[in-house]
Design a protein around this nucleic acid. Structure first.
Lengths: 130, 130
DNA sequence: TTGACCTATCCGCTTAGCCGGATACTGTGA
DNA sequence: TCACAGTATCCGGCTAAGCGGATAGGTCAA
């Protein structure tokens, strides 16, 4: 390890290199779910209640609540509680930057079929017998 | 599935917002696996063969090869073939930018426990009976 | 030509993690 | 106080996706 030492990363506050990879992977995974990503983008511009988020993504309320809690745990969004309402919004402007960057990269490779049908390769003929 | 029909779009800017979310989520998911992220960071600085990557991550050769193919499909890395060797490396400088940004955000929330133990809540004491 | 090496793909197996529905908890208004 | 709205958590079920091992295909050296 320790090859990162000379990388001149301005950011390097990472405790242990190996650990950081695991943590960052979890961060990416949090955005790897379409529902959570949709919620995050919904909360980029302004704060919304859980109910509003439920209406936006069209899933069960409990599920949406859990997704929002997950995003909050990861530090992507912030919660503000007022009465029986919970208002979620994106806390850090770098989140928007991250999402925009990913959009740009994804747009470039949109034709390239993108992700991981290589990994499981389930379809191709889909003889789903059910 | 069948929304692949939009593949004829100029690709530059997000075709449909809903579709873009799914694509971007897949992109994030590709980086959401610790093994792939470790490989990607390994390939940020210089190109490496599959065998070198296998040594780096310590997993089965076939698995590593598949992960690399996945990263290549997603456009994160580029392949250069020479003889019986395949050299992988990061193609787009924005990839490094994306990873650095995520590291910075993850470092900030590193203490916040991060990802999704809210979602499945598996561990806590690891009473894996095997 | 033959054998060793490198890489890619296929095959079950196993786990992570998303989903809906039910339910508990809390705060507000009547 | 009661009824209800808003939110969070729990539960069983199901699919996605990672893993190792086996194997196939192609390339170089002797």
């Amino acid at each position: 390890m320790a090859r990162r030492a000379s990388a001149a990363t301005p950011v390097a506050l990472l405790p242990t290199d190996g650990d950081a990879v695991a943590v960052v992977a979890k961060f990416f995974r949090a955005l790897g779910d379409p529902t959570r990503l949709r919620l995050l983008e919904f909360l980029l511009h302004e704060e919304h209640t859980v109910t509003e988020c439920v209406a936006h993504v069209g899933l069960a309320q409990g599920r949406v609540s859990t997704h929002l809690s997950c995003l909050a745990d990861c530090g992507y969004v912030q919660v503000r509680r007022s009465g029986r309402h919970a208002f979620y919004r994106v806390a850090d402007p770098r989140v928007a930057q991250l999402v925009l960057l990913a959009h740009a990269l994804a747009a470039n490779n949109h034709t390239a079929l993108c992700a991981c049908h290589r990994i499981p390769e389930p379809e191709a003929a889909d003889a789903r017998v059910a």
